[in-house]
Amino acid sequence: MKKQLYFTISLVVIFIVLLSSIKTTLDSYHSYYKDTKKGQLSAACDNIYSFKPLRVFTSYTGLETGYGFFGTNVSSDFALSYELYDSSKKKIARHNFKLDSNEGSLRFMSMNRLFLERLTESSDNELFKKYIEIVMTEISKYIYKKYNGKYSVNLKVYLYNFPSLKDYANGKVQTELFLLDEMNYKR
């Protein structure tokens, strides 16, 4: 009886792992190829996945993750930098935004998916734009406090565009930074 119970638990968890894998693979595929038509398999996965007890279980066990590891595509990344200005509007310094530890900075950079959504979201989604603005204000406020409110802050988010392999072969070696968002903060 116990043997059968463990066997069943194992099969159920394997099913959940497969479900998460297939769902994230399909989501990634649809997102990369901008294919808005979702097939039956996609719809079925979404339906099962939206079952609340399953969501709770996967959230508390880590089983909600997919396993693409840089697949289907290595997504674009972003760089944050800020400039500090004194009360006479003179530029004091320019820094790339970093936290105090490598691990902290790496975790902070995971937030870049938000800026990626900002690029891919429909341009008329005012609510999402407003949300990004709030996030930018929060980061600016953090920098402002870090310097004890001595300077006003100009925060910039750039899309980081390293030349493609094809462009690199043709002699283009410089990284391009496209300004995506900007925020001025002074209390």
Partner: peptide, 15 residues
């Protein structure tokens, strides 16, 4: 399963 999908997802992308 994790590694199979890691490879499969990559091969779906042209790059």
């Amino acid at each position: 399963i994790a590694y199979f999908f890691a490879g499969f997802d990559k091969l779906l992308g042209i790059n």
